[in-house]
Structure formats: structure tokens, C-alpha cells
């Protein structure tokens, strides 16, 4: 079995009296593509935000490459965060910067890379998502699919150990979903470690080596996509998966590559 990259143990998160999830543990190994599914409001986004320390979990520990990042004495949060890439449902590109500058800014301001070197690196990352020809465009001048690919390039530029995707295609028009999934599939093939919250069941079955079904703040069931689709332990899992497969998975346009 390959190295664990990101490990969470007994994470609990509450907002006031509202328990979002309790004692969640998971381990993401090198080259894994793990898909998390679950009903709305289950805490999937909150879990991803806890994993890269954007939100503080109430209790529990998180390790990145064997180092406990929830231990305040180990390293600065900002340092940890740049090694965990994150892609959001609504892209969240920096609106005042061109695509190129969106990708460059982390390199120049966080990694303190010289401008020229950062520019070359940013161009490479835009190439990787097929958008070099849009380098000079502002987010408002790009389609949703293109914005999301720039957002992926922005995260990749930091050379993260693991990429977290929070429903990266659910804000997109159906005809734009394919181009983003294609980029993610290519990343998986290149061996990027990924944790993906998505309802794209076609993607899950094709790419994921593990699937997690989350409900009401708990991991109800996990296993390979085939396990969960064909031999689920709980009737609830089967129902949910086939329902969203019908809603999302089947209609997704086939993309090349």
C-alpha cells in the first residue's frame, strides 16, 4: 500500500450547538483519487475546509506527510495550506487579476519566486489545463469552465501534495462540465493525490479508487466505487448513489481524453 499523504483522525466540528460532523477519520494515500458523496448539508464542504485548516476543527488531528499540522508548534498554518490545493464550487478566482496573474500570485507572494520564473511556471500550469491562449483574460471574460480550469492551475502552481475539490462542476452549465472533468482525470492519471466532493458518478466510477458516502456528519460507508454501487452494505447508500447517478452521472457529456 502506498504512503498516506493526508490523514485525519476523529475530527469533530460544531457551529454553536449544531454538530456538523463527529469523529470523522480518513486517510488519503499517495496517488489516491477519493470521491466523497452525500446529501446536501452533510458537512462535506466543512470537512474539506477543516482539512486544509481554513476552518478550525473543534477536536481531532490532521497529519500531512506524517507531520501533525493541527499541532500549532509544528509549522505555520499558511505553510501547511500551500501544500494542500483547494478548488471551490464557485471558482473564487481573484477578479482583479488576469488568468496568468491568478496563477502567479501564490508563486511570487507565498513562494517568493522571482517574477520571470513565476511567469514561466504559471504559463506551464495554464498549458496543463489548456488555457495558455487565455492567459491575459480576466475572470469576468472567461466561461465558468475556463474559470474553474484557471482555479485548478492556480492550486497546482503551488505544487500541492494533495488537491481538495469541493463540487468543482456543480456550478457549471452541463456543456462545460466535461472540460473540467477532463482536466481532473488527467491529473489523476498523472498520479496527483485527490479528494473530490462531487455528484458526477461517471467520474467517480471511472477515476476513483475509493468512495466515501457521508450522511448526517458521519461516514456511513466507504469502499471502491463498485462496492458502493453494486454491493452496498446499506440500502440507504444504494438508494442515494443511484438517485444522483440518474440526476448527474448519466447525462454528463463524454469528453475526449
Amino acid at each position: 500500500m502506498s504512503q498516506p499523504v493526508l490523514v485525519a483522525q476523529n475530527l469533530t466540528k460544531t457551529y454553536g450547538n449544531n454538530v456538523i460532523f463527529r469523529n470523522i477519520s480518513l486517510s488519503v494515500n499517495e496517488r489516491d483519487t477519493i470521491v466523497i458523496v452525500g446529501p446536501s448539508g452533510t458537512g462535506k464542504s466543512t470537512l474539506l475546509r477543516c482539512l486544509n485548516l481554513l476552518t478550525k476543527a473543534d477536536s481531532g488531528k490532521i497529519w500531512l506527510d506524517g507531520v501533525e499540522i493541527t499541532d500549532p508548534t509544528c509549522c505555520s498554518e499558511d505553510e501547511c495550506r500551500q501544500r494542500i490545493g483547494m478548488v471551490f464550487q464557485n471558482f473564487l478566482l481573484f477578479n482583479h487579476l488576469t488568468a496568468l496573474d491568478n496563477v502567479m500570485i501564490g508563486l511570487t507572494k507565498v513562494k517568493k519566486m522571482p517574477k520571470e520564473q513565476a511567469r514561466r511556471k504559471a504559463v506551464e500550469e495554464l498549458e496543463r489545463v489548456g488555457l495558455v491562449d487565455r492567459a491575459g483574460h480576466y475572470p469576468g471574460q472567461l466561461s465558468g469552465g475556463q474559470q474553474q480550469r484557471v482555479a485548478i492551475a492556480r492550486a497546482l502552481a503551488m505544487e500541492p501534495r494533495v488537491m481538495l475539490f469541493d463540487e468543482p462542476t456543480s456550478a457549471l452549465d452541463p456543456e462545460l462540465i466535461g472540460e473540467v472533468l477532463a482536466v481532473m482525470k488527467q491529473l489523476a492519471r498523472e498520479g496527483m493525490t485527490m479528494l473530490v466532493v462531487t455528484h458526477e458518478m461517471g467520474f467517480a466510477r471511472e477515476v476513483a479508487n475509493r468512495m466515501i458516502f457521508m450522511e448526517k456528519g458521519q461516514i456511513l460507508e466507504e469502499g471502491t466505487p463498485d462496492d458502493l454501487f453494486e454491493r452496498p452494505k446499506y440500502e440507504r447508500t444504494r438508494q442515494f448513489l443511484w438517485k444522483i447517478a440518474e440526476l448527474h452521472g448519466r447525462k454528463a457529456p463524454e469528453e475526449n481524453g
Partner: peptide, 21 residues
Amino acid sequence: EGQMMAGRAIGLSRWQTIRYI
């Protein structure tokens, strides 16, 4: 909040995100 979250997510500090984003 989104812009702050996106800035923090690539490793910018809080102050850097305010300043540059």
C-alpha cells in the same frame, strides 16, 4: 468571504490576502 478563503487556500497570510486580493 470567498476571496479571503481563496487567498488563504493558496497559502497567503491573512494580511497578504487583504493587501493583494
